[in-house]
Design a binder for these strands. Structure first.
Lengths: 353, 353
DNA sequence: CTCCTGCGTGGATACGTTTTCATGCATCTC
DNA sequence: GAGATGCATGAAAACGTATCCACGCAGGAG
């Protein structure tokens, strides 16, 4: 038994297909026919096929969602936020996991394009150049959690300008910004989050503070540099790619090469995990020997001993807002949203000894 | 500038659209025309629209994926497995999060049906009755991690039969099983996993062992009962719904109502998390006062102190295999797959004092 | 040489919907 | 009362593809 089509409904109700379509999509119709069509549709258990509609409108409903890794709890939270909003709107979500690899990302974007999905929420892995094709293909893209890195011809001045421009929610557009953030985004207030964390550590007497970074952390690193200013030591900033192994290697290498550091700021929960593991392996006690602040308030942060002091960013909200933005796109012209972070002090930091 | 269609390619190559279609989908064509068509297609940057194809074939490619909660690391792993396989096959994935709520699940299934997605991987929340409509709508469903609960007229005998039938991979079908597992599935070997864990605890001298369960844990509970046999105490089996709050409440309630228990088996990582938290709140030391074994080997299990002894189930593999199954459906008639679990002994269990 | 077979090819159709357009009828205005 | 206005309605087109079918041509068998 195959599904009923709009034609069947029209026939059974003794009206034209156009009328059925109108009734079902809220067009005008007389009360009488509307009632009849609705009754027949219900009786036939008719559900309009998204296929026909999509083809006709030359676009697939719903939205795409690209995250680096669903195994990372933070992105799980973000995804849940997106799904919550999508469900409320009755829109389907196509998901992809990029592994923070620009190539895979590009491939996934291509696949979405092929599906004619024209709304996308992405935690970008590629740089601005990588994203240009998708944008000029007419996709509505909302970046979440971070922005694509600047073009090869990178310029700190430019980056800062773009960032601050983004944060100027209440007005006056900076005059002709070099890279206008013309694509909407939902970010956490990294600058404030990092600064608060660094200030906290400084207040505890720490001077040699390391930053453990991952892909796409340029904004956080910038904020870190800014917050540390004079005390900055470039060797204390290390990176990993998105994998757990790499994160562990970076953390372990950091601890071994710089035994003089007294505090570390891990830029993500996988990096925090790696830091705890590496510290334990090297017999460094937290917080006795080294203080640790981790980005992301994941549930297990509290389970550690000592419980981890964290910079919480609202993953669920970021996802939800991003989904709102991508759905409302065209209606309002929202530029970018910045959500607050919060330092949650638990037990992984101690005064420098 | 709009996307090129198959018609454009045909025109530019001086052939009919049918030929272009054939060349691109591997049909027969002369080497010469094939080459020309391919060249033109590449030059025009032609990508076939999934919309047209879907409508024509009356089905959307790709697959649906329904999990209870992406915030739960285990389901994150499972989802990553599915995505890995889907990416390898170049198939898109539509995701939904059910919150372990049969109603939401049904709604999401309905949405997938509307999209004409006919392949679905699900960690089911609803029971067998809930799933019947989707199945007879022609969907190819592969259940992952667990099976739908039996119908209201539940029967332990039946359940066991179905399970063992499922595990009889190498042959002779049981004669007319009451509820034939005619829908393929990928499960962890819960029976063995639970038994191993219980044996381990028994071997440490524990007798009052509690099970902390979540939605869809009927198979695990059955295995738990079976493994405990004589020592079973029904009050020591408590349940929560899928939420963190509920898990905490269940764990806390358990510890308070039964201070005599000496070990607890948490049936999932969120439940394990809750157990650790509740124990700490009640000043119960792990493993001194109570031993804990947690289902799911999530990365943070090692970070706890003491590190958690866990029953590892291969989340990634479960997802990957499920995706394979749903893609190969029709080709082979695979019944069900059971993947092994492993007890990983760390530090959260001690001999009964 | 003829008939048949087989293959490469292109025209035409169908998939299910939305939307445009024209039509007919009823109501309103002067 | 005549023309104008508005609304409900249905026929038809279009979206981009895969596939059926018929056609033509080449080559092989008889």
């Amino acid at each position: 038994m195959k599904r009923a089509t709009i034609k069947d409904v029209a026939e059974a109700a003794g009206v034209g297909v156009a009328t059925v379509s109108r009734v079902l999509s809220g067009g005008s119709a007389s009360a009488q026919t509307r009632e009849r069509v609705l009754a027949v549709a219900a009786q036939l258990d008719y559900r309009p096929s998204a296929l026909g509609r999509n083809l006709r409108q030359r676009r697939t409903g719903g939205m795409g969602l690209l995250v680096p890794d669903l195994t990372d709890t933070f992105y799980g939270q973000l995804a849940e936020g997106v799904l919550a909003c999508a469900r409320a709107a009755g829109e389907p979500v196509l998901i992809g996991s990029t592994g923070d690899d620009p190539e895979q990302e590009a491939e996934l974007v291509g696949s979405l394009l092929e599906q004619s999905v024209d709304r996308l929420i992405a935690v970008p892995a590629g740089d601005a150049a990588t994203w240009r094709p998708a944008l000029k293909a007419g996709m509505t893209v909302v970046f979440a959690d971070r922005l694509p890195a600047d073009d090869p011809a990178e310029d700190d001045e430019t980056g800062s300008a773009a960032l601050s421009d983004l944060m100027a929610l209440d007005g006056l557009p900076a005059a002709a910004p070099p890279r206008p953030p013309d694509v909407p985004s939902v970010l956490a207030d990294d600058r404030s989050g990092i600064r608060t964390a660094v200030q906290y550590l400084k207040g505890l007497g720490h001077r040699r503070i390391a930053y453990l970074g991952g892909p796409g952390h340029s904004r956080r690193v910038r904020a870190f540099r800014e917050a540390l200013s004079a005390a900055l030591d470039d060797d204390l900033i290390v990176f990993s790619d998105g994998s757990r192994d790499s994160a562990y290697a970076a953390a372990s290498g950091l601890f071994q090469s710089r035994p003089d550091l007294t505090a570390v700021l891990a830029g993500g929960n996988m990096l925090g995990e790696a830091a705890v593991l590496a510290a334990r392996e090297l017999d460094l006690r937290i917080p006795r020997d080294v203080s640790l602040i981790m980005y992301d308030d994941v549930p297990w942060a509290e389970l550690c001993s000592p419980p981890l002091t964290v910079v919480a960013q609202p993953g669920h909200d970021i996802g939800y807002r991003a989904a709102e933005l991508v759905l409302r796109a065209g209606t309002r012209r929202q530029r970018g949203v910045v959500l607050p972070t919060e330092l949650i002090v638990r037990g992984s930091c101690a005064p420098r000894r």
